[in-house]
Amino acid sequence: MTRKLVTVTAGLSNPSSTRLLADRLTAAAEEALADRGEKAEVRVVELRELAHDIMNAMTTRVPTGELPGVLEDVAGADGIIAVTPVFNASYSGLFKSFFDVVESGVLDGKPVLVAATGGSPRHSLVLEHALRPMFSYTRSVVVPTGVYAASEDWGVGEGGGRELSERIARAARQLALLATESAPAAADPYEEPTPFADLMSGLGT
């Protein structure tokens, strides 16, 4: 069966270490799905390219450009890989803004792998104090292993990047497990509305 993955990356430079981490996580997730006998259909979303559309949606709710298609793919995804650079000790504003324009309920029950990049390992807990709570709020199923990559993790320090690779593989395996188990999407309220009698339950008639 084909599983749909959407990778959301909020890096701003080109090439960015955030995109690099996003690509490695995506490849690892495809591999982990293949190990489970599943195919992957992947869409990588560079939020930088959607920055204006995200602000349009935020200010007026009018979905412009590629944004509606991206939001549709997010809604239909079996798993999401969300990667942000650390700005001012948290996720970037662009990253947060994107998830702010995702309709509420869309991420309910969706497996999300959280990852971040930073210049210093001292920000690694951003995954635990910023990303994980945000996705808990959206009722996503957050993958137990988050991946944080500081400058030294890219191979300069001791271990030559091996620890990062192991962490990426572990997180990807966990995402693949959840993505193959992911529950079918909730009923579309526009297709199957709550009948009037149920809406009136408990109200004066």
């Binding site: 602000m55 349009n56 200010t59 007026t60 009018v62």
Partner: peptide, 8 residues
């Protein structure tokens, strides 16, 4: 501050 007139 939102979309341009053309986009809108």
């Amino acid at each position: 501050g939102g979309p341009s007139l053309e986009e809108f």
